[in-house]
Computed example of a mutant assay.
Amino acid sequence: VTALPGSGAPAGALVLVRSARAGGRPAADAALVSDFAFRAGMALSTAVLYAEQAHTAAVLRSGLDPAPLPEVPGVRLGAAYRPAPDALGFGGDFYQVEPARDGCGGVKFALGDVCGKGVEAAVLSGHVRQSLRTLALVESRPLRVLDVLNQSLLEADSGRFASLVMGAARPGAQDTLDVVLAGGGHLPPLVLRRGGTVEAVDVGGMLVGALPDAEFGQAGVRLARDELILLYSDGVTEARGGPTGAEEYGAERLAHDLAGCAGMPAGAIAERIALRVAEWLAGRAHDDIAVLALQASSSSPSSPGSSGAAGAPR
């Protein structure tokens, strides 16, 4: 009987049976058994450790994956999310959409990007998302929400910060959608008009969690029926690929591809943009990618399939 060495405790035991007529165990056999037991013990310990890590990653991922998009009258939604390949399935980019609870209809939304990658970025992303949900219960003013979130991140003293754009979209008269945006150092959202014209919305603002006296920006947009506003992370515009493999996808190419989506529903547009970026990357490594589209529609609930599924194929 030979113990199988493990991490802090034996991983098991190796039991060998020898015929009584074979006599004592030769030294060569003893060395072989010892070597085999060591290798088997290490293999078993590694397998157990890997299984524990895989379970932990799965639990974290289930809590950090974007929630399914809601169906809300007057708003058509779409989204796409692609974590970086080396991020264990979760990263620092995020989006979230929830029905407004103030009785006025519409949705509240946010899309952000925390600094860093992998598990550390995912932890901060989870903190920001949970803080936004909690603040939404007691505060409806987007700028005030950003002020409180900024203070919360500074008090956490993690040395990390985030870019963020958030706001509310409320159905108006004649199937319009009124969108109020508040921003903290994030890329400008893009508006797709009916004729295929694309407009950038300069929300402005400073990074959230970087400075005690940060100032944040605000802007408003009115969308006619079928017009859309697109929020995205820098994983889209900074995706490097193309003929040389080093050229960025860029804001101009994004606007051009978005213009070609006029007339499409929000879910299809979000996936189309994610597909265009994937084609540009051509299998190369990339940062986290998050896309969120909000579109004005009729006051009837969104039809099945009009919303992009959260946690889309990665």
Rank of each mutant, 00 (worst) to 15 (best):
D257Q: 13
A182F: 09
V119W: 03
M264Y: 03
A200N: 01
L137S: 11
F109K: 01
G41S: 04
H127P: 00
H286L: 02
M42G: 15
G183D: 06
G245L: 10
L88G: 00
L254T: 10
T237G: 06
R160Y: 09
A31P: 01
G185I: 04
A182Y: 11
P212K: 13
P301S: 12
D213F: 05
E199R: 14
V180H: 12
V236K: 05
A31K: 07
F94S: 08
A259K: 00
A57T: 11
Y249A: 05
V236P: 01
L254S: 05
G63S: 11
G103D: 10
A54R: 15
G267D: 08
R133P: 03
R25D: 13
A219D: 00
A54V: 04
G103N: 13
P10G: 00
G241C: 07
T2C: 05
T237A: 02
L164V: 08
L258G: 02
A67H: 11
A13V: 15
A84V: 10
R82C: 07
T56Y: 06
A122N: 08
A11W: 00
S140R: 13
G24R: 13
G78D: 08
P73C: 03
R160I: 02
R284H: 09
D113W: 07
A274Y: 00
H286Q: 12
L60A: 15
V48N: 00
V179S: 10
E248G: 02
A30L: 14
V128C: 13
M264S: 14
R141A: 15
P66E: 05
A80K: 01
A290I: 12
A31T: 13
A58V: 00
P85L: 08
G204V: 06
L149P: 07
F216D: 05
G63V: 07
R82E: 03
R284V: 01
S7Q: 10
L164C: 09
A282W: 07
P171G: 06
D287E: 10
